[in-house]
Design a protein around this nucleic acid. Structure first.
Length: 296
DNA sequence: AAGAAGACCAACCGCTGCTGT
DNA sequence: TACAGCAGCGGTTGGTCTTCT
């Protein structure tokens, strides 16, 4: 939103390296260079492109703005839902979250979280960091009660819900909108509960950072128990992306004891398989390192 | 109409982990 | 094994825009 023409770009102490907002001319130079020589070698790229920027700045500009695959514009409701789910699983692992939302950058998701979603969760009485009720007495049961409530008892629900959208003075439209939002959130958390029921420990779902970092190296230890867990976790993440599939999995679980079902693919935990999402357009991008990054 | 406050988001900074030597 | 250089990540900053008073 910065206007390059009016914003004040600065230079560093040696007076050579430019900082601040990018101009269209700089964008052009950067894009041309990358199209010609490809991504990478960021440190030397500024010189090759004829830019007075540091490599880090070039990389950021390309990744977050200039890359052709970057999707601009409003975050769609389904994307928002996915961000919520993934954040619940991964925490502030913005690049991991972004890696599963095609066309969105980690910076964009981080900004959207900080400016919209965290506030939204707070309005819902949910701690955006832990995804648990801010008030211990404020359980999902309250949300369910609220979501099933009629206009007549919404006033009473407002007493237990710290949701400003719901109060006795609200219009019918406002009440219905707030009601729908609560239902949305309730579904979100039911999914999480289902994951627990499927045997994913809360530790894994909280996605302790060290486990995530370790996964790439553990991938080399084929056949290990940890690998099995990683496969299962990856499949679970993928299933979140396709909620219908997840619902299906939920139903099939009762019929196929010990067998997981995702996207119509039946497999045992630990069995080698390639998730359908891994062959999606996103993972076909020419970025092997990034692909590897997301093979949890 | 003008100033203040808040929202938004691009960009920067510091740290971490990976890779090559 | 130790070190250096680099890329990438997440937290934070600060300029601009929008809304409120």
């Amino acid at each position: 939103m910065r206007n390059p023409a009016t914003a004040t770009a600065t230079r560093n102490n040696n007076g050579r390296q430019k900082k601040g907002p990018w101009t269209p001319e700089e964008d052009e130079l950067l894009a041309t260079c990358i199209k010609k020589e490809g991504e990478g070698r960021w440190r030397t790229l500024p010189k090759r492109a004829g830019l007075l920027r540091c490599g880090k700045s070039c990389r950021l500009r390309w990744m977050n703005y200039l890359r052709p695959s970057v999707k601009r514009g409003q975050i769609a409701p389904d994307e928002e839902d996915l961000i919520l789910r993934l954040h619940r699983l991964l925490g502030n692992r913005w690049s991991l979250i972004a890696g599963r939302i095609p066309g969105r950058t980690d910076n964009e998701i981080k900004n959207y979280w900080n400016t919209h979603l965290s506030k939204k969760l707070i309005r819902q009485g949910i701690d955006p960091r832990t995804h648990k009720p801010l008030n211990p007495q404020h359980s999902t049961a309250h949300l369910k009660a609220s979501s099933n409530s009629s206009k007549a008892n919404l006033g009473a629900s407002a007493a237990t819900l710290p949701n400003p959208n719901i109060n006795p003075a609200s219009s019918s439209a406002q009440i219905m909108a707030a009601d729908k939002e609560n239902e949305h959130f309730q579904n979100h958390y039911q999914t999480y509960d289902t994951a627990i029921a499927h045997g994913f420990t809360s530790d894994l779902l909280n996605c302790d950072a060290s486990r995530i970092e370790m996964r790439s190296s553990s991938n080399q230890n084929q056949g290990s128990n940890e690998d099995c867990t990683d496969d299962a976790f990856s499949s679970f993440l993928n299933s979140l992306i396709n909620e219908d599939a997840f619902t299906n999995q939920n139903q099939m679980q009762q019929q196929t004891n010990g067998i997981e079902q995702v996207d119509g693919t039946t497999f045992s935990l630990g069995q080698g398989w390639e998730s359908p999402i891994m062959s999606s357009n996103y993972f076909n991008q020419n970025d092997p390192k990034r692909i590897n990054d997301h093979l949890i």
